[in-house]
């Protein structure tokens, strides 16, 4: 069987698994709750008498906040799907009969990864789009670069997913999910701490954020996504980048650089290669 056919077969299988497991229902339920809550919140906001600048600032912050919710839901969903589908299958013996077929293990892993990528990014893009439309309908705010923002949100999910896949090839299913989500949250906190450090002019603390953004690119991509969601005037409204806006967790002072995007791509490729090496050498 050709490698491409194997990859596609396994990817389709992974998508079918996602659609048949409870994960999908859990994700759908959480999304509906978030959408409902946020549309209620935004409609209340529309009822307030705010200046147009204030309204755009609040809309930006709220949108970023809700999007963070979605990225967290996507992180949880894919992390707890990637664990069972990879290390769970090797543990239970499902992988044994699959990998006794004439297929390469790397093709199998790529198929799983592609399926999870399609699932995870499909979810954030759809949920994010629905959210943008809700905001548009309730407070008439349209983000400056919605496509970039959604793509970056998807990229963030892919980064976390790749990390979970690597973890799932070496540790147990649940542990890999827990560790991946833990690291995701840690980097986010480190990013906020770093931003506060920068705002206070403390370089040592400021470096915490930049170092963690290099080690795990989720937070960097997330900041890029926020920047594309928020109104360009929001930072100025908040008092300027030097006056504390940078320290606020749901606003981003700078757009993403191409260099950082390149690093994120390289990071994903490297971590995937590590996962493949570990999976190919593994005794079943």
């Amino acid at each position: 069987m050709s490698t491409a056919r194997t990859v596609l077969t396994i990817a389709a299988l992974t998508l079918r698994e996602a659609s048949r497991r409870r994960v999908l229902f859990a994700l759908a339920a959480l999304t509906v709750v978030l959408l409902g809550l946020s549309s209620w919140g935004f409609s209340r906001l529309a009822a307030e008498s705010l200046t147009s600048g204030e309204a755009r600032l609040t809309a930006s912050i709220l949108l970023n906040l809700v999007m963070f919710g979605y990225s967290l839901v996507a992180a949880l969903g894919t992390a707890f799907l990637a664990g069972p589908t990879l290390s769970g299958e090797t543990e239970s013996g499902i992988a044994l009969s699959m990998l006794a077929r004439p297929i390469r293990r790397s093709a199998f892993l790529l198929g799983k990864w592609l399926g999870l990528v399609a699932f995870g990014s499909g979810f954030v893009v759809l949920a994010g789009l629905a959210q943008i439309l809700v905001v548009r309908l309730t407070v008439d705010y349209w983000p400056p670069a919605p496509a970039t923002a959604l793509a970056l949100l998807a990229a963030q999910t892919v980064v976390l997913l790749t990390l979970t896949v690597l973890l799932a090839t070496v540790i147990s299913p649940m542990a890999s999910g827990v560790v991946a989500v833990g690291l995701f949250c840690t980097t986010w906190v480190a990013g906020v701490v770093g931003a506060i450090g920068e705002a206070l002019g403390n370089d040592a603390v400021g470096r915490v954020g930049s170092v963690s953004r290099v080690l795990l690119p989720t937070d960097g991509l997330w900041r890029g996504a926020m920047n594309a969601f928020q109104d360009p005037s929001a930072i100025v409204q908040f008092g300027g980048a030097d006056e504390g806006a940078g320290a606020f967790p749901f606003l981003s002072t700078a757009p993403l650089t191409l260099t950082y995007l390149g690093w994120a791509v390289l990071w994903v490729a490297m971590v995937w290669a590590l996962a493949a090496m570990s999976f190919v050498r593994r005794d079943l």
Binding site: M1, T6, T9, L13, R16, E17, R20, R21, S92, G93, I94, L96, S97, M98, A100, R101, P102, I103
Partner: peptide
Amino acid sequence: VGYLPELFRYQPWLTAAEVLALHARLSG
């Protein structure tokens, strides 16, 4: 080559016919 492992487990979320179709496809 066909293989029945000692630890036999198949995707619980698939039907028996789907499991067979999957393996038939992977076997090429």
